[in-house]
Design a protein around this nucleic acid. Structure first.
Lengths: 201, 201
DNA sequence: TTATTTATGTATCAATCATTACATAAAGGA
DNA sequence: TCCTTTATGTAATGATTGATACATAAATAA
């Protein structure tokens, strides 16, 4: 069941992964078509035929990032036996990912497109939605903790979720500034020192 | 003692403040000369005569931001009687500033130029230096706390400083995502819940 | 073969970027 | 008045941006 016309001469997935690296490192605006086509080792018409536009390529890159890099971090939440362990591992996995050798430091969802038009379907709004989804994931894990008796029903789960999401956001900046894995792990550990006070209800 | 030639027809300080707003809102790269000259209500040659270049204008804008917006935040540290109160107010002032009506949300030092060349004297490296200076300020306040008997000499002051700096970084992202003053104040309060655990030594 | 369909490489598009010539205007000094 | 100095507005600079036109190449279908 081969498609009709001339077959594509490049590996779409490999090219997308290279594009993701460029967006991750330089951000949407600073990543030029020249940067992208050079890294993907294709010409502009091939890029447009495969991804539609620069914005379309970015959307595909964000989805790949979410499924590849983001998955390990988010997976910590449902896997752990308790909300406390889940969030602790969530932050630890963030520290590991944000300082992983051979890849850009910090999170693409935080650093990939901070400035941009407020309108819908912009690269900026796309990433903001992902960040807000992250807060929801944290809160839902906390809600499970309440259901399972780990946490008091009086605890302000939204506050706790926003606090740890904010710490995670900040770790991207700190990682870009040159922090080591050890430093970020210590920051994650420091954030967990607030746990008892936050969940006292 | 007036200067010799034709006098400047615009208010340099007022124009600089308008430029600061543009850089603060859009970031260095996304702020075009058209954006800047329109906001400053001058033409490009006047901008270059007064500030040398776009990068020179940015440096001046960052210095204005530091002396104007940043001062209130940093002033919390030496003013407070204790390191704990100082950092608590530091975060609270950050929350207030980052959600202040009528000005861009989040911190210009964090959001103003995240991507850019690694070389020296770039807008990106300029802001990174300011962020690292912030960590030093926090650590120095903690050191004072040790000298004054508030904190144990065994406490990991660098860890504590980096943690609260990271929280502050994250608050810029969260503020840009639409968080309210109340939400950010709660996050600041949550971060202070870690204090006892962090300073136990 | 011939027709159709899709991909590729070259070369280019208009738009925008930061920056600057250049002529003119407005001040002080002689 | 005339000279020097600085500022201004217009207009344009070369470079780069994201996106395409076009001819050609490589596949399937008839």
């Amino acid at each position: 069941m081969l498609p009709k016309g001339r077959p594509r001469a490049f590996d779409r997935d490999a090219a997308l992964e290279r594009a993701m690296r460029v967006f991750w490192q330089k951000g949407y605006d600073s990543a030029s078509m020249s940067d992208l086509t050079e890294a993907m080792q294709i010409n502009a018409p091939s890029l447009y035929a495969a991804f539609g536009s620069k914005a379309g390529l970015f959307r595909a890159a964000v989805e790949l990032y979410t499924n590849q890099v983001g998955r390990r971090i988010k997976n910590a939440l449902p896997t752990a036996a308790t909300a406390k362990e889940g969030i602790a591992d969530f932050l630890k996995q963030t520290a590991i990912s944000h300082t992983h050798p051979g890849q850009p430091h910090g999170c693409m969802v935080v650093l990939g497109a901070l400035h941009g038009e407020e309108g819908a379907d912009t690269p900026c709004s796309l990433l903001r939605e992902r960040r807000l989804e992250n807060v929801v994931l944290l809160r839902e894990r906390l809600e499970r903790g309440v259901r399972e008796g780990e946490l008091s029903p009086k605890a302000d789960l939204q506050q706790i979720a926003e606090f740890y999401a904010t710490v995670q956001h900040g770790m991207s900046i700190t990682a870009r500034d040159g922090a080591t894995l050890d430093q970020l792990v210590k920051t994650a550990y420091a954030a967990m020192a607030a746990w008892e006070g936050l969940t006292a209800g």
